[in-house]
Design a protein around this nucleic acid. Sequence first.
DNA 1: AGATGCGCAACTGTTAATGTTACAAGGTAA
DNA 2: TTACCTTGTAACATTAACAGTTGCGCATCT
Lengths: 142, 142
Amino acid sequence: MKRNSRLSLALHTLGHMARDPGRMRKSADIAAHAGTNPVVVRRVLGSLREAGLLVSESGHAGGWRLARAPQEITLADVYLALDERLTAAEPTAETHDCSVEHALHFRVSKVMEEVEQTLIQKLSETTILAIRGATDQKSMSK
Amino acid sequence: MKRNSRLSLALHTLGHMARDPGRMRKSADIAAHAGTNPVVVRRVLGSLREAGLLVSESGHAGGWRLARAPQEITLADVYLALDERLTAAEPTAETHDCSVEHALHFRVSKVMEEVEQTLIQKLSETTILAIRGATDQKSMSK
DNA sequence: AGATGCGCAACTGTTAATGTTACAAGGTAA
DNA sequence: TTACCTTGTAACATTAACAGTTGCGCATCT
């Protein structure tokens, strides 16, 4: 699959779910539609469940569905649930006492944090209900 | 080395160069200071040369130095020179005619472009001359 | 019980990036 | 000119992160 695949998969799936919130979907079906593997789907959706966006059930009529109304789930919620921060983190505290490196890290980190806040802000302006093209009644809505 | 290493290496090196613009530095010395390999240094600095930020010379007294005054080189210049865009690019035009996927890509791409503009804007507010901690006369300035 | 679906752990590709080696070409100094 | 030094680049090895895969245990419904 491609890069940033986790976010893409998550948003794609939620986009479909938003169109029919009550329906239960199996990871196998979701995987087939997204062109990936059921286990990968469970891993990604599992993160969303931990964040309280989704609910999963075992058993015969099991599967996945939204934990709350689609208009109450924004793209920012999904982004944060996946915990893929922009911030480099840079845990390399190699005690490389180079003042340039310290100053650099300080400046860049500050900028990245501000930028991430901007990203979250912008993502929070769109709900998963708003993600759909025109009125597709086919594809995954069968 | 760590992730985002190209940007880190580039900024780190320019940060030092800004403190002594006239001096010529060998890739071997830069590599030793940054804890990496001379060839890696040449690859990264090569991008900066193509962008007109650095000049390199062969020969006995060869090496690298800034192509212009340090106060005229911003972090944004370096970021753009390395051509590492945030935008996912997503070249996977799998003709996967799923309207949700299209709408999703459209929305997210737009947000990412806006965020990248914010990032560039913020980076352009700092020059490489501003990157230094207090007054370190030691370390690489010998 | 049997069928179905999730949860999770362990393992195997795959891919992108860095690290490494080697050598040609360019330039300086004696 | 010769000797030496440094960049430029190609080719290959190593690594790390991630997706994909398999297998099996547990839960739930008919």
